[in-house]
Simulated scan of single mutants.
Amino acid sequence: MQSPKLVIFDCDGVLVDTENLANRRLAEWLNAAGFETTFEYCRKNFSGRSMASVQKEIEAETDVRLGADFVERWNAGLPDLFAHGVEAIPHVRDFIDKVRVAGVAYCVASSARISKMHITLGQTGLLPLFEQAMFSSTMVARGKPFPDLFLHAAKTMGFAPADCIVIEDSVAGTQAGIAARMRVFSYHADPFSDPEGLVKAGGILFDDMRELAGLVPIH
């Protein structure tokens, strides 16, 4: 396996541990709106997705209406939600440092808005490493599981898809990376992750960030 020229990191669940906080709140909001659900369902089905795509799916498949301001209200509440308790994923900083020392290009590409990434990466001290290369699904027509975001990131950074790898944790994100014709390494240490779904999507699975250096030849 050749060394990648660009490493694309997802944010939530790969760089920062936010998925459980976010999906607990999402389950509360959806239940309050009349969409009966559980934290576990949201964690499995909505992780790695933009709130706009979650709203679109729910309103297309049910009679529940979340309101024209749903996404706006969600984003307005994120600073409070992530004000405390957000931590970096264990050992991910070591892998980022290895990529940096080797001089390999890297970036973050997330379903989240740039403003949210500023909050979560800021809380964990990772923001200075990524603020020059941040990509959000708000920049493209279609979010994950479509390949648009990863293709946009690669094009902007100046690399062909075949020279890129993606570090993901969600099924939607893994599907997006594979659809972009990139190698995808899918992290599944979280007890609520979906290893079977990640394998089916085409990801190369690992459950410890310290394993990644052995899986990805960085030089």
Rank of each mutant, 00 (worst) to 15 (best):
R142W: 07
A22C: 12
A88D: 11
L205A: 04
A102Y: 10
E131V: 00
F192Y: 13
I58P: 09
D148A: 08
G85S: 10
L66I: 06
D163E: 15
G122P: 07
F9P: 11
I8W: 06
K5P: 00
C107N: 10
L129W: 13
D94Q: 14
A172E: 01
E36N: 13
S3T: 14
G203P: 04
A133S: 15
S111N: 11
G85C: 12
G214Q: 10
T18W: 04
A179S: 13
V184L: 01
A112N: 14
A32I: 01
D208F: 08
R49P: 00
S115I: 03
L15N: 09
I178G: 01
P217H: 07
G143H: 05
A52G: 00
L15I: 08
P147L: 09
M134S: 08
W29R: 15
T174I: 08
A180G: 04
N23V: 00
D97W: 02
L78K: 14
W29M: 14
F192E: 09
F135K: 05
T120N: 11
K98C: 11
N23Y: 02
R181Q: 15
L126N: 11
G122L: 08
D163G: 05
P90S: 12
G13D: 11
D10T: 05
A33S: 14
A83C: 11
T120G: 10
Q132Y: 05
E57I: 12
H84S: 14
K5H: 12
P147Q: 09
L198A: 04
R100G: 01
V108D: 06
T156N: 09
G48Y: 02
L198N: 03
F146C: 11
G67L: 10
V99T: 12
G122V: 07
K200Y: 01
R43W: 00
D69Y: 02
A160V: 02
I218F: 02
H84Y: 11
V14G: 06
S186V: 03
H91I: 00
A27V: 07
E211L: 06
P161T: 08
L121V: 09
G202L: 04
T18E: 06
V92R: 08
F185T: 03
A102D: 07
R65T: 13
F159I: 07
K56W: 03
M1D: 06
F39T: 05
P90R: 13
L15D: 08
P90F: 06
S186P: 04
V64N: 09
L78G: 00
A27C: 06
S136R: 11
T124H: 09
L215R: 11
V199I: 14
K5G: 13
A176D: 02
A22I: 02
V108T: 15
A109N: 08
E40C: 03
S136Y: 10
D163W: 01
G85A: 08
E36P: 00
W29Y: 10
G197M: 02
